[in-house]
């Protein structure tokens, strides 16, 4: 900046300074900031509106136009919602199911992803495509046989049943995401580990896994959120031990508007907390892959 000051005095000496690049830079920065703000607003505004509506009195929801600021603050709807039968228990079940699904799908999916990434075997491409077929089949068609199967095995109406179903549903994404993550880990480092005395498992555990951890955490976010939001399978396989969405969703859709917002708010928050916790690993992943 110090060089600019004398240049301004020289301006009178008929040597104009071209300020356009500087202006362009400033303008681009401003536009970038505006774009960031716009994208953030796009994400935050719906959440904000849900939160405002969830904590408004029912009477305020009937006014038109609706207020943008939380002027009619009330926890009445929220407390009625939270005190209704099954919300607390549903939350516990949902956490058990989501964490269980996460663990199981990583235990099964990460080695599968590793195999796809590292080994060439006959029918590998077909296998990758075939994996996605699970998602192509709608659960609705399977509902009665699925419930019957779990009834006969004696696992009906347990969180384990839902964990197994959700694991089956999330495995394709887990396997495909982890496979691409393992691909990004250079084979060289793994070979180096082997040369320095690690067994195959040791090399995987000590070298590949730490390097792949960010990608695995990204996969786990997918898994967690999918399990958290899944309703249909959970409603088919459980009756008295349901996950939170399965417990409240059908009753929310018939309830007055304020309850829908209260329920929506309550369903969003835990998933947001989980994503916030996982965030730092995600950024780490972008750091490693963008090299």
């Amino acid at each position: 900046m110090s060089t600019l000051a004398p240049s301004r005095t020289e301006q009178s000496d008929d040597v104009p300074v071209d300020l356009r690049p500087l202006r362009r830079l400033k303008r681009n920065r401003l536009l970038l900031q505006l774009a960031c703000v716009a994208v953030s607003l796009f994400m935050v505004v719906p959440f904000y509106l849900i939160a405002v509506a969830a904590f408004s009195s029912p009477a305020a929801m009937n006014e038109f136009p609706l207020r943008f600021l939380p002027t009619a603050f009330s926890v009445e709807t929220m407390s009625t919602f939270l005190s209704s039968t099954g919300v607390g228990a549903g939350l516990i079940n949902s956490l058990i199911v989501a964490v269980g699904t996460l663990a199981l799908s990583l235990v099964v999916g990460a080695p599968a992803g590793y195999a796809i990434a590292r080994y060439v075997f006959k029918g590998r491409d077909q296998y990758q495509l075939f994996l996605l077929f699970t998602r192509a089949l709608p659960i609705v068609v399977l509902s009665v046989p699925l419930a019957e199967l779990f009834l006969n095995v004696g696992m009906y109406d347990t969180p384990l049943a839902v964990v197994l179903l959700h694991t089956a549903l999330t495995l394709p994404t887990t396997i495909l995401v982890t496979a691409s993550v393992f691909l990004a880990v250079p084979v060289d480092v793994e070979e180096a580990a082997r040369i320095f005395g690690c067994g195959p498992l040791g090399a995987f555990g000590r070298v590949v896994l730490p390097l792949a951890l960010p990608g695995i955490s990204a996969a786990s976010i997918f898994t967690f959120v999918l399990s958290w939001n899944e309703v249909l399978g959970a409603t088919i396989l459980t009756l008295n031990q349901r996950t939170l969405p399965a417990t409240v969703l059908s009753s929310l859709s018939d309830s007055p508007l304020t309850f829908r917002f209260a329920g929506g708010f309550f369903l969003i928050v835990p998933a947001l907390i989980f994503i916030a916790v996982m965030r730092k690993y995600l950024i780490n992943m972008w750091g490693t892959t963008i090299r």
């Binding site: 516990i92 347990t158 969180p159 384990l160 008295n240 031990q241």
Partner: peptide
């Protein structure tokens, strides 16, 4: 979650 009997009752 794995033993499957510890879910909380939602009803």
């Amino acid at each position: 979650s794995l033993s499957g009997c510890q879910g909380a009752s939602t009803s």
